[in-house]
Simulated assay, not measured.
Amino acid sequence: MDSAVSDAAVGVPPLAEPDEAPQPWQTDRTRAPVATKIVVAGGFGVGKTTLVTAVSEITPLQTEALMTEASEGTDDLTDTPDKTTTTVAMDYGRITLDDDLVLYVFGTPGQQRFWFMWDDLVRGAIGAVVLADTRRLKDCFPALDYFESCGLPYIVAVNHFEGSEQFDPEDVREALSIPAHIPVMIMDARRRISAIETLLALVAHALEETPEE
Rank of each mutant, 00 (worst) to 15 (best):
D2S: 11
S3H: 05
A4P: 10
S6Q: 14
D7H: 07
G11V: 05
P13Q: 11
L15H: 08
L15S: 14
A16G: 14
P18E: 07
E20D: 05
P24Y: 10
W25F: 06
T27W: 15
D28Q: 06
P33S: 06
T36K: 06
K37G: 14
I38T: 07
G47N: 02
T49E: 01
T53A: 08
A54L: 03
P60N: 03
Q62W: 12
A65C: 11
L66M: 10
E72P: 03
T74P: 13
D76Q: 04
D82I: 02
D82P: 07
T84G: 08
G93W: 11
G93K: 04
I95P: 02
L101Y: 12
V102I: 05
V102G: 10
V105Q: 01
G107T: 11
G107C: 02
G107H: 03
T108E: 02
P109Q: 05
Q112F: 13
F114N: 00
F116H: 13
F116V: 12
M117K: 09
L121I: 01
I126A: 02
L131A: 02
A132P: 15
A132Q: 02
T134C: 10
R135I: 06
L137T: 03
K138L: 09
D139R: 10
D145Q: 06
F147L: 03
L152Q: 09
V158H: 01
S164T: 09
E165G: 11
F167A: 05
V172C: 05
R173C: 02
I178W: 00
I182A: 01
P183F: 12
P183Y: 13
M185G: 15
M185P: 12
D188S: 09
D188E: 05
R190T: 03
S194G: 00
A204W: 12
H205R: 07
A206N: 06
L207Q: 11
